[in-house]
């Protein structure tokens, strides 16, 4: 997978590409992926590893709020917050 450059403005496309592996049906950027019922018990930790590696951030224990990871929009906002960038 092509890594997003640290300074990239919009992480949404890389997130969408990652999610397409796990969720076959089309999803919108605001859809709650945990409520769609298509992800298993190992998905969340894989998502964390993906976000850390792809966007060079560190997900810490205080970040373990599902609201940071529920949708493409929420993840983009979370990455922006970790990088100190507003989306």
């Amino acid at each position: 997978m092509t890594r997003a450059v640290e300074g990239d403005c919009d992480p949404r496309s890389a997130i969408r590409a990652f999610l397409r592996r796990f969720i076959a049906q089309p999803i919108g950027d605001g859809d709650d992926i945990f409520n769609l019922g298509h992800v298993d018990s190992l998905f969340a930790i894989q998502l964390v590893l993906f976000l850390e590696r792809e966007f060079a951030i560190k997900v810490e224990n205080r970040d373990l709020d599902l609201d940071n990871f529920r949708s493409v929009e929420m993840m983009a906002a979370f990455i922006g917050k970790k990088r100190g960038v507003a989306h």
Partner: peptide, 15 residues
């Protein structure tokens, strides 16, 4: 508590 009250099975256990 490690990792928050909802983190046990989603984050702590898989790691």
């Amino acid at each position: 508590l490690v990792g928050g009250v909802r983190a046990g099975l989603r984050f702590v256990l898989p790691a």
